[in-house]
Design a protein around this nucleic acid. Sequence first.
DNA 1: ACCTGAACACCGTTCAAGT
DNA 2: ACCTGAACACCGTTCAAGT
Lengths: 234, 234
Amino acid sequence: MATPPLREPLTQQRVVERAIEIADSDGLDAVSMRALGDALGVVPMALYKHVANKDQLLDLMVDVIVLEMRLEHPSSAAWKPAARERLLYARTAMENHPWAWRAIETREAPSPVALDHIEAMIATLRSGGLSPRLVHHVMHTLGSRLWGFAQEVFASAPPPTDPAQLEAAMAFMAQRWPHVLEVAAASSHDPNTVVGGGCDDAAEFAFAIDVILDGAEALHHAPSREWALPDSNR
Amino acid sequence: MATPPLREPLTQQRVVERAIEIADSDGLDAVSMRALGDALGVVPMALYKHVANKDQLLDLMVDVIVLEMRLEHPSSAAWKPAARERLLYARTAMENHPWAWRAIETREAPSPVALDHIEAMIATLRSGGLSPRLVHHVMHTLGSRLWGFAQEVFASAPPPTDPAQLEAAMAFMAQRWPHVLEVAAASSHDPNTVVGGGCDDAAEFAFAIDVILDGAEALHHAPSREWALPDSNR
DNA sequence: ACCTGAACACCGTTCAAGT
DNA sequence: ACCTGAACACCGTTCAAGT
């Protein structure tokens, strides 16, 4: 009588799924080959039968998230609302996996799944008649927003919770960085939490992509027609 | 007779300068406490007398680069060319230290030096009469471009050098990602290097900030005056 | 005051060995 | 076929000790 296996054999899919679970709950740094092995009840080196190395593991994790950004049929046929919907859809996937932007940023080349996403957005913009050259600039201007995130540098500084400290900090800012304070106050939805925290990421994302898409539309219709020539290399 | 010291004692400044030199020449990953100690002819643990830990070392390295972005007197008094000049100036500093965006991105809170940079840009935008709320949105839209970089996700894929491989890759792209190929071809300055590589980063940066600043100007002058109300919280 | 040595708790990964 | 154990070459950092 053969001894039955004590657990399911690993597969690449199980390895990647578990890695995503760990990243979702504990962050990307918690995904080490050793911790992932532990979570799967296996010695770390066993993982190397299913992924070539950690880099390929990250590739596969990113592909799962990018696949979640796939939008088969935008609800509008017009290029601008369709592009807008694609970008907001990508942002939803990113919101569900807050670690993913850090993984995407370290990928060196686009996978076929990523190229499918790029292709869909470019096709949408081209369907509006925007020239290849204008579309190219727009894609660069969108930058990471194509992948549903904007790198909000220095965005995560929480204000002090102690009211006395908060008041002191605000007094100091009013003296040394008065314009920063004024703009932070203007952005705050809740007037009581004036410094940081009061920022609506979704609204900022929407504002930014509207500026970019409106700008693209304006250039497309510009009287110079510089951007409208479909067959030039401009 | 006291034995003279065999080398200059370390200072925080020397530690940070050497770390920046290593990052400039070998990349940010080459800056480990151990390698930095080696480069200074000192055991790694000696560094902890001058920086609290590696995180503070990165803070200090970033501050040096952000200080290089300081522009005392823009050459125009008008807000838009002045803002444009600030952004391009920041990009120059970033170009000289290609590792710096990776370090900036991992900082959690802005240092005083970083707040000075933010303050200068906000003051420039406010000098044009843009409302605090519009300025806030514009700052978010600029995102990392305020720090002179745009995260060009998946931008660094070099095309195959072997002509046969290149032709095969292009044939495959033409079939599966036709719009990507068309747009890549339109962007290429040299028609012989059609896939990747032919992209002018400086031109893309300039295009993007012009779209954003032009968009800000249009909203500032918009007939709705939604963005022009200086004293509301909108 | 400033630097050192040994050690701890981690990494990713290779290679030969086990069942 | 699939997993394991021991080992290698790295990390950042602490702590007690040296001069």
